[in-house]
Nucleic acid binder design. Structure first.
Length: 562
DNA sequence: GCCGTTTTCGGCCCGACTGTTTTCAGTCG
């Protein structure tokens, strides 16, 4: 088992223990280990080989034995036993908003209901309210929640699909018969939600490629197969299709398999009658069509084909353009890495600066900083900054926007920080007017530089709260407040559409990882993909600025002031 | 489950809101 699989199993164990009403601290032990393993940059297998499992924080005798069993046998008896007591369908109920482990456990033990379909029927037939502790309101919310889950469909986030697509790509790339292999379809376009993993392979031995796919250990089943293609499901039920073409057809196929349907139809039209023999890249094809190269993220038929013909496509922001990250957490609040680790990870990425923006006091669960602790953190940051000449930690906070729109820390404290992000973390159910008024108050605060994750959406889990985006954009422009593109693949908030409108409106965006661990700085690439899909250019991006320029923009004095 | 010790047990982030109660349990962030 690899780290990803082990982390998933540990998390599932935690879910099952919770439903069974086991000791919450035991549950936390499993969750903490799952998160740790998920962030590990070494395979547990290697750590095991050198006998280091016991040195992992939070691993004692019991967890160590379980890790060993997983690594050595690829299975875990304890997990199997729990599965017998808690069917998978019961765990799916945890995704329903408002339904936690206790209520799920109650429903299962009282009724034996073990799937979403059964649960939905029971809610419709008003049978749930008969369970002591549940009422009509919960019943209604369960129905609404299942409707919401169904509307989300079978799509998964890019954060789930892309790593698996890369694994399959690398697996196929090992074959000597494979001349080229690329991820295509919506993943290549960087769509935040994708329904399947599509790969294009160039090979003259397509039967061998299909055979290799069938033998891939992460393939659950193959359901369709024929000359030139093989289709089935990977882990998590994720659909995949591998298309095999002759090497001479690769780049034309690559272009046609990447764009959205509407984009593809227009390109087929454009290619009609054009001699594409001998092209050795997508760029060469566009050239023969007298078009600018269209980056995959733009291939949605939103005007990019016309602009490419005119030669007026924008130059899109790249990961390499970013000079720093302006939204990260450390172990001062709910992050998993300390200041130095975060700083070193940022330096290793080639960043010139990193703003430390831990949570503020009202977010108690995250050990949010009060004025005193913030002051201590700032001191530690100043001390650390003496160590580098090529890099700078910026002081900052992700300050909570309270219910009435006021901020969680006094103005004079915010004034002393390099970067202030204001975010909503509570009262999601207010009306559009109330929500927008809170944001307006935050934007009008002269110390606020960036509004964090504007809508609070969590992809595949929860829609964002209602916001008057037009009004926010007008205010943001007026007050030179940037909007964050929160790069976490579960958020991607603001979305690409809003990002495009922001840039058209002259509002800057900040593409930030919201990393809670040093390994998560890399998540920024998802935000860049989303930004590119929103036609965002380098000059639109706050953290593409050099340090001096940024500090001038933020209105701080640059040196060690404050 | 782990951990640390003032060392083999007792503590392990918490505060607000919701829906169900009628004084509180469960969920969420």
């Amino acid at each position: 088992m690899d780290n990803r699989a082990i982390a998933a199993m540990l998390d599932e164990i935690a879910d099952m223990l919770e439903v069974l009403g086991d000791n919450p601290f035991k549950v936390r032990a499993y969750r903490r280990l799952a998160a740790y393993v998920d962030h590990l940059d070494t395979e547990l297998r290697e750590i095991h080989a050198r006998g280091g499992l016991g040195d992992i924080p939070g691993v004692g005798k019991a967890l160590r034995a379980k890790l060993e069993e997983m690594l050595e046998t690829g299975d875990l008896a304890y997990y199997r036993r729990l599965r017998e007591r808690v069917p998978p369908g019961v765990l799916e109920m945890l995704a329903i908003p408002g339904l936690g482990p206790r209520k799920v456990g109650l429903i299962y033990s009282q009724t034996g209901i073990s799937s979403l379909d059964e649960l939905y029927r029971a809610a419709q037939e008003k049978r749930l309210r008969q369970i002591p502790g549940l009422g009509g309101k919960t019943e209604f919310n369960i129905k609404k929640g299942i409707d919401m889950l169904r509307s989300l469909g079978r799509e998964v986030t890019l954060g789930t699909a892309l790593p698996r697509a890369l694994q399959l790509r690398d697996y196929l790339a090992e074959m000597p018969q494979v001349e080229a292999v690329e991820i295509v379809g919506s993943i290549r376009r960087g769509k935040p939600l994708v329904g399947d993993v599509d790969l294009l392979v160039a090979s003259s031995d397509e039967a061998a490629v299909r055979e290799k796919v069938r033998k891939y250990r992460r393939v659950l089943e193959v359901d369709r197969e024929g000359p030139g293609y093989i289709h089935g499901r990977l882990e998590l039920g994720l659909e995949f299709e591998v298309i095999v073409v002759a090497p001479g057809d690769f780049y034309r196929s690559l272009l046609l398999c990447t764009g959205s349907r509407a984009h593809r139809e227009k390109m087929v039209e454009a290619m009609r009658g054009v001699d594409l023999r001998g092209v050795d890249s997508e760029q060469a094809i566009y050239q023969r069509l007298a078009m600018q190269y269209v980056p995959p993220e733009l291939r949605e038929d939103r005007g990019e084909i016309e602009r490419a013909r005119e030669g007026t496509l924008p130059s899109l922001v790249t990961v390499e353009d970013l000079r720093g990250d302006l939204h990260v957490h450390t172990d001062w609040s709910d992050g998993g890495s300390n200041l130095r680790e975060m700083a070193e990870a940022a330096r290793a990425r080639g960043y010139r600066y990193l703003a430390v923006t831990d949570h503020s006091q009202s977010l108690a669960v995250s050990r949010g900083l009060d004025v005193e602790r913030l002051r201590s953190q700032v001191e530690e940051i100043r001390a650390l900054n003496r160590e580098w000449t090529d890099f700078r930690l910026l002081t900052g906070i992700e300050v909570d926007i309270l219910r009435d729109g006021s901020l969680d820390l006094p103005d004079e404290v915010l004034a002393g920080l390099d970067v202030v992000i204001a975010s909503i973390h509570s009262h999601f159910r207010l009306s559009r007017e109330e929500q927008t008024a809170r944001l307006e108050a935050a934007i009008r605060n002269p110390h606020v530089d960036i509004i964090g994750h504007l809508t609070g959406r969590l992809l595949v889990r929860r829609p964002g709260y209602e916001v008057d985006v037009d009004r926010v954009l007008r205010l943001a422009r007026e007050h030179r407040t940037a909007l964050e593109i929160n790069a976490h693949p579960d958020r991607l908030d603001i979305d690409e559409e809003t990002a495009r409108r922001a840039c058209q409106a002259g509002v800057r965006v900040a593409i930030c990882s919201d990393a809670h661990h040093r390994a998560d700085l890399d998540l920024v690439s998802y935000g860049v993909l989303s930004a590119r899909r929103g036609w965002v250019g380098r000059s639109d991006v706050l953290n593409a600025m050099e340090l001096d320029e940024l500090l001038a923009y933020l209105g701080t004095s640059g040196g060690d002031a404050g």
